[in-house]
Design a binder for these strands. Structure first.
Lengths: 222, 222
DNA sequence: CGGATCTTTGAGTGATGTCAAGTGTTGTGG
DNA sequence: CCACAACACTTGACATCACTCAAAGATCCG
């Protein structure tokens, strides 16, 4: 269900939309927008995974969020986008020009409540992130992150292969750790038999209960 | 300017509103709501400072936000509030019953855009928090926090006394540090002549430039 | 004045960051 | 199909920063 199914995809960008009624199709590494660009569109992820990244002068990077199908990116910005956003996998997005929102709301006031709900979702996920960052140990953050990923991809159970489309550096910059610490923590989880790491791009939860114990604080699953 | 100036204050709570047209008056330590309460009202801070706190099973605490005049609390929750909120100082809040929002939006669709802006502000402040938490060193977090406080109270300059209504434990739990580390970092800032700490409840920036250098990454000032 | 609470300061420890080397994987061009 | 380069990931050794535990000031409030 799209909030604004009548909205035209934004054709002013370099990546041309492929009109198939399913929204714009983009390849991996496609940039949706850069920090500082005029925030003139919302993107609902239809398929694939996106990465929202903020880069600081000193070269440090924060991965603000990973966006999965159903998530909306480009919300909660003012005039300009506050971070870069690019695709980690081939993906599809539903684009809504921002100007259309006010218009749509005037026509269909009940949309306001949907927008409220969207806002709540966005704020909630930021809460989750800051909760994750406040957890003291690297292990807790990693465990929490993996549980959250499994939940978002509807594979929150034992022995299901969960895709891990982001690299270690992305995870590290998301959790405020180094790639070495991420690697060591994951290895430790593997050695303890809590997860399996069949290859770079995926993981399997072998003992969800213990993983959740490690994650400790209630992990909000979307 | 209030979004819903016609809204009646919520009279169902233990703290009775004092109807003076300026919203409800509350004393320090007054609880606006607890985590888990039905999220049926928004609160705009008119004066004073509030604290949003999340407490975990293991006893750890996260201070999700400090709310200053102009800030809106109670936004971005679903059915139930996601954290506790109480006053750090005597304060006034403008209360809007949540049911009134949908109603108000139907009547005045242009409100939708205001709500969008509110959501943007809420999301932005959560971004800022996670940025703060990702900064590696304790010093950067403290410096960033002090700069942010000075900005929010419109005293972002040298030699102005800025109120510090929250205790060290609140700061620590906000920044993901311990009170000892907070204390040591503040002392170090004082020794270096960057800030002055005339008493518990306030600080004075003596060298804004150096403080901002320590905070490094762009600190968004509200 | 005295107790309670908050804050500061000190000493020691441990987790995570840093630096560095080594292994594995992917993709390209011969 | 293989060789090689580029990149991603893992592992190890060491250093450092922040946490823990402990005690000693400050400040507040009766």
């Amino acid at each position: 269900m799209y909030l604004f199914p009548h909205a035209e995809p934004d054709t002013t960008r370099s990546e041309r939309p492929v009109g198939d009624g399913q929204g714009r199709v983009v390849g991996a590494t496609t940039v949706l927008f850069h920090e500082g660009d005029r925030a003139d569109a919302l993107y609902e992820v239809v398929s694939g995974v996106f990465r929202a990244t903020k880069i600081f002068q000193d070269g440090r990077r924060q991965v603000v969020a990973f966006a999965y199908p159903g998530d909306i990116v480009g919300f909660g910005h003012g005039e300009a986008y506050r971070f870069d956003c690019d695709a980690l996998t081939p993906a599809r997005v539903q684009v809504t020009a921002r100007g259309d929102i006010g218009q749509a709301m005037r026509q269909r006031p009940e949309l306001g409540e949907k927008i409220l709900a969207m806002a709540a979702g966005e704020v909630a996920s930021m809460h989750d992130l800051s909760v994750l960052l406040c957890r003291k140990s690297a292990m807790e953050r990693i465990a929490g992150f993996l549980v959250s990923l499994a939940g978002r991809t509807h594979k929150l159970g034992n022995d299901q292969r969960v895709s891990l489309p982001m690299c270690r550096a992305d995870i590290a910059d998301h959790l405020g750790l180094t790639i070495e610490t991420v690697s060591r923590s994951m290895t430790k989880l593997k050695v303890r038999g809590i997860v399996d790491l069949p290859d770079r791009g995926s993981f399997v939860i072998r003992d969800l209960e213990r993983l959740q114990e490690l994650a400790e604080c209630e992990t909000v699953v979307h």
